[in-house]
């Protein structure tokens, strides 16, 4: 048995995009992504919008059928045929607490639905008890159960979404920008909820976010994506303190730091231009159009993830400190 809860190997997700009446072109949203997550661990996934973070999360759960690659959960390969066996183990929490909950359902309906689907209770009373327990776990209470989702604040709604994900006792949750829509003070409440649940229940997270301060706070390891590929993966502290991929270096230097002294003294590594379209990926290393270290080789060959230190991997031909 492997030490990993989840192993993703060379995962690809290509969406066919119509370019004419009879022609189409693959949009390579995810193009060869590999990583592992241990039980009870949080892997943060960061990168600019459109780089494929959500697609990775959804493809792992087979909400999109993978174009190719392997997803191995607890040593077993997940396929479209057997995915239903894993639905109880793997859950997802979405970004938008406003649109991901049905406003006409009560909190008890929302949290109870997965219990109904997976027939996880014997009597009505057991169902109600379980719902109350779940609400307590996420810092809500049983009085909330009869109310409608639209009566709650953003942070409370996000916690309803988490309670629903927890209903089936998952061991792994994809958290797709779960705090991005929330005010900072509310964000802190929800982040603490995620951390408490991990400690209590040993759940592993794939934590997707574009706020690097949040990701650094919650993750043990961080993977950085650029245009459908992982360009760097390492321990969270290592990625922040010693980024080795040129893209990660720029990304980290661009984080707005809530500290005037740091802001005054810090050096930015500016990135020119915009991310290329994933329909028109540059040859070789996809980052080369914006990279200050690009050489001829970068246009010809795509660098693979290579270990450069313990648990620290980057995809770059010319790494610089």
């Amino acid at each position: 048995m492997s030490e990993y809860l989840l192993e993703v190997k060379d995962l690809k997700q290509h969406f066919p995009i119509r370019t004419g009446w009879f022609s189409s072109k693959p949009l390579k949203a995810v193009d060869g992504v590999s990583f592992e997550i241990k039980p009870g661990e949080t892997l943060g996934l960061v990168g600019e919008s459109g780089c494929g973070k959500t697609t990775v999360g959804r493809t792992i759960l087979h909400l999109y059928k993978p174009t190719s690659g392997e997803i191995i959960y607890n040593g077993q390969q997940i396929t479209p045929q057997n995915i239903h066996n894993f639905r109880q183990e793997m859950q997802i929490v979405f970004q938008d607490p406003y649109s991901s909950l049905n406003p006409r359902m009560t909190v008890s309906d929302i949290v109870g639905e997965p219990l109904d689907i997976h027939k996880l209770y014997g009597t009505k009373g057991e169902r109600a008890d379980r719902i109350n327990e779940l609400l307590r776990l996420v810092g809500l209470n049983s009085d909330h159960a009869r109310r409608y989702a639209h009566e709650f604040s953003g942070g409370q709604r996000q916690r309803i979404g988490i309670a629903r994900a927890l209903a089936v006792n998952p061991k792994f949750i994809v958290c797709d920008e779960p705090v991005s829509a929330l005010d900072v003070s509310i964000q802190a409440q929800v982040i603490n909820t995620f951390e408490d649940l991990q400690e209590k229940l040993g759940i592993a997270y794939l934590f997707i976010a574009h706020d690097l301060l949040v990701v650094k706070h919650i993750s043990q390891r961080i993977a950085v994506m650029y245009l459908g590929r992982i360009v760097e993966i390492a321990d969270a502290d290592e990625v922040i303190a010693h980024p080795m991929h040129p893209y990660t270096q720029s990304l980290i230097s661009a984080i707005p730091i809530p500290d005037p002294n740091t802001a005054r003294t810090r050096q930015r590594i500016p990135l020119e231009g915009d991310v290329p379209s994933p329909l028109n990926m540059p040859s070789g290393c996809a980052f080369r159009t914006r990279c200050r270290y690009a050489t001829e080789r970068c246009a010809q060959e795509c660098p693979g993830l290579t270990e450069i230190g313990p648990g620290h991997r980057i995809a770059c031909w010319n790494p610089h400190e």
């Binding site: 802190a188 982040i191 951390e195 301060l213 949040v214 706070h217 984080i255 809530p258």
Partner: peptide
């Protein structure tokens, strides 16, 4: 309530 980049892991205070 905001996470810090330099801090070790301290719990956020909402």
């Amino acid at each position: 309530s905001i996470p810090r980049l330099d801090a070790g892991h301290t719990r956020l205070i909402p």
